[in-house]
Design a binder for these strands. Structure first.
Lengths: 67, 67
DNA sequence: GTTATATGTAAAGGTACCTTTACATACGGA
DNA sequence: TCCGTATGTAAAGGTACCTTTACATATAAC
């Protein structure tokens, strides 16, 4: 059960750079990049902050891959 | 920005024990207990599995405490 | 062709998450 | 009382998350 994320898609839809998003969320650019590249999942807290940032419900940003 | 969770409330509403919930989710009872007691937050993956388990949207199980 | 912007990646370190193993308290029923 | 069930908690170990620092490539503008 992997977690799929659409961070890159939503970020690019809004024409936001990794740098700006990192600043806005008070985290590092490397963290954004690693999450977009699927290196690891964000913590629940960071995931919730990203939902608020993009103003979307969970299922539009993170969801479980079934198998 | 703390994460608030209502795991205990939803679990008890459904009359499910920590033991059964842990078995159903294939995790340990200690993990359920620690999360209910606020010792730490679940990973995003486990949080998503709990949403599916209780069949509720994110905001009914986990949300950010504002301040 | 140099500069600025955006992104990719890596190593090292700290903390959070989750496990296994173990012991403990509280409660209800036989 | 004794037993079974439910819950609380602790220590030790492994992996995941996130940081700081650093260097790297690609592109577009001037």
């Amino acid at each position: 059960m992997r977690v799929i994320n659409r961070v890159r898609e939503l970020r690019q839809q809004r024409s936001i750079t990794q740098v700006k998003m990192a600043e806005d969320l008070a985290i590092t650019r490397q963290t954004i990049n690693a999450i977009e590249k699927g290196k690891y999942n964000p913590s629940l807290e960071l995931a919730l902050r990203m939902l608020a940032y993009f103003d979307v419900p969970m299922e539009q940003l993170f969801y479980l891959e079934e198998e």
